[in-house]
Write a protein that binds this DNA or RNA. Structure first.
Length: 495
RNA sequence: GUCCCCAUCGUCUAGCCCGGUCUAGGACACCACCCUUUCACGGUGAGAACCGGGGUUCGAAUCCCCGUGGGGACGCCA
């Protein structure tokens, strides 16, 4: 942490004093181990906002040498689904956000504070509710159990909800947020903690589990900031000092108003996985939405991010999602992907395109050939997504010839003559390396006082049907003598 | 409506805490040029911001207040 000067922004100091960062790091080697949790509910697709919340918790745990807990908040029986639950596991795993405690850890699943699915923790909640009732802090009404706030009660008509409600006069809740500083909020209505059907409510189970699982830092979206006053009152009701809170900014949708939701374009993690995005690129991008290392670095290995990440470095303002920047980040990672991984990634992507004849042909092709084609394309494509379209003509003879390109290429010079010359020279040409091919073509051109360029466009057109692609020499080398010969002949014959 | 949070290029952000070094830095996107006889990558350059108004101060992007704008929360959802 050589950049000790970078500490807080905004606020009057207070919660974000200069000691924070230092203290935190020392804690990791001392008595108070950091314990953070990610607590999703399996009620919908896993989206980018959830992923970032998980990521920030994970980063903080790794930065401090603490524990990252995964807890499944499945108290909403109506909306839970096993498919969504599996999606949470899969997405976190894909992103590389491994959890130390939670379901599916080790052989048996767990840690010392399980079970980690709230649907299996009813006994715990019953105990804690009883404690509140014994202390006179909970009561029954309309079949539900309510948490009782301390203070003088009075009735008032709520215009917004169009009904009379009972309010409680009490001191405001003070939250010392690690990102926002001091926040005060009045909590002035009793609230339900157990539904009339006997099921506990989010606020209750969330707090109870954070107590029971010894969570030290709650890092969550800012949309929870207004719940925090309820939670703090609950901690007080249990006689427990609340953990540290850190409310991170929200991700806003790319276009239009509001925060990103599951329905928005680009919101689903699953989608990126399917489209062949690299998880490390997505993670890197997500880190930069609301956090930065304090200097100009953007593309960074995850170990560097872990080392540099800290709560005081998290921004306070919401960030708008930008798919262009994500795509750029992804390309940067793609470009330096080791050959084996790149080829494997490509194979996986093609494998998912079960409806595409070209994709199937690519998979059926010789493995060495497939590899050569992919390596030739790696430095050229903008994303894995366009790879199948970009390489299609390597795997089928039925590739389309772009009529506009054809018209343009055939318009000047005598392209057919050039093609015939290449065709004539081809049987004896050295095709073992790009360099040799380039030499041969240049020699051919020199004989007629022409340039390499006089051959390139038309050969490319004949071989691929387009005017974009890998270098022409590489294309000839990879396609091989037979294919090249056949394609040039066919092109000449077709007129 | 009530409460809470936030406010630097179109977007992500540095700078703000500890006011002068800011004619406000970087990245994405956009445009131009160079590299390359394709397309990309890469390189160079251009345009592009301190929300408004008051205050404090010799001096404010930086501190304070008010407006405005954006966001969130107001469920027997999580």
């Amino acid at each position: 942490m050589q950049d000790g000067g970078r500490v807080t922004k905004g606020g009057e100091g207070g919660a974000r004093s200069s000691c924070q960062r230092g203290c935190e790091v020392h804690q990791s080697s001392g008595m108070s181990q950091v314990r953070v949790r990610f607590a999703p509910s399996p009620t919908g697709f896993f989206h980018i906002g959830s992923a970032r919340t998980a990521l920030f918790n994970w980063l903080y745990a790794r930065h401090t040498g603490g524990t990252f807990i995964l807890r499944i908040e499945d108290t909403d029986k109506e909306r839970n689904s096993e498919a969504f639950l599996n999606l949470i596991y899969d997405s976190l795993t894909w992103l590389g956000l491994n959890w130390d405690e939670g379901p599916r850890v080790g052989k048996h699943g767990g840690g010392d504070f399980g079970p980690y699915r709230q649907s299996e923790r009813s006994d715990v909640y019953r105990d804690y509710v009883q404690r509140l009732r014994d202390a006179g802090r909970a009561y029954e009404k309309d079949g539900a159990i309510w948490f009782k706030l301390e203070g003088e009660r009075y009735e008032v008509f709520d215009e917004h909800r169009k009904k009379t409600v009972t309010k409680v006069k009490g001191p405001p809740v003070v939250i010392e947020d690690r990102i926002r500083g001091r926040v005060e909020r009045v909590e002035d209505e009793d609230f339900v903690i157990v539904r009339s059907d006997g099921n506990p409510v989010f606020h209750l189970v969330n707090v109870v589990d954070d107590i029971a699982m010894r969570v030290t830092h709650i890092i969550r979206g800012e949309d929870h900031l207004s719940n925090t006053s309820k939670h703090v009152r609950l901690y007080e009701g249990f006689g427990v000092t609340p953990p540290a809170f850190a409310h991170i900014p929200l991700i806003l949708k790319q276009n239009g108003p509001g925060k990103m939701s599951k329905r928005d374009q680009g919101a689903l993690i699953e989608e990126y996985q399917r489209r062949g995005y690299l998880p490390e690129a997505l993670v890197n991008f997500l880190c930069l939405l609301g956090w930065n290392p304090g200097d100009d670095r953007e593309k960074m290995p995850i170990d560097d991010i872990i080392r540099l990440f800290d709560l005081p470095g998290v921004n306070q303002s919401n960030a708008r999602f930008d798919d262009k920047k994500l795509a750029h980040m992804n390309m940067a990672y793609l470009l330096e992907l080791p050959a084996d991984r790149w080829v494997a990634q490509a194979r996986e992507l093609f494998g998912r395109q079960t409806g595409s004849a070209v994709a199937q042909a690519a998979l059926a092709a010789d493995a060495g050939y497939f590899r050569e084609v992919m390596l030739l394309s790696q430095p050229k494509v903008k994303g894995l997504e366009e790879l199948s379209a970009y390489t299609a003509y390597f795997f089928t003879e039925a590739y389309a010839v772009d009529p506009k390109v054809r018209e343009k290429v055939m318009a000047k010079g005598d392209p057919k003559a050039r093609l015939q010359e290449v065709l004539d020279a081809l049987p004896t040409m050295d095709l073992t390396s790009d360099g040799a091919i380039e030499e041969a073509l240049k020699a051919l051109a020199a004989q007629r006082g022409l340039g390499f360029g006089d051959y390139q466009a038309v050969v490319r057109l004949a071989l691929s049907g387009t005017n974009v692609g890998p270098s022409i020499t590489g294309m000839i080398r990879v396609l091989g003598r037979e294919r090249v010969l056949a394609r040039l002949q066919r092109f000449l014959a077709d007129g």
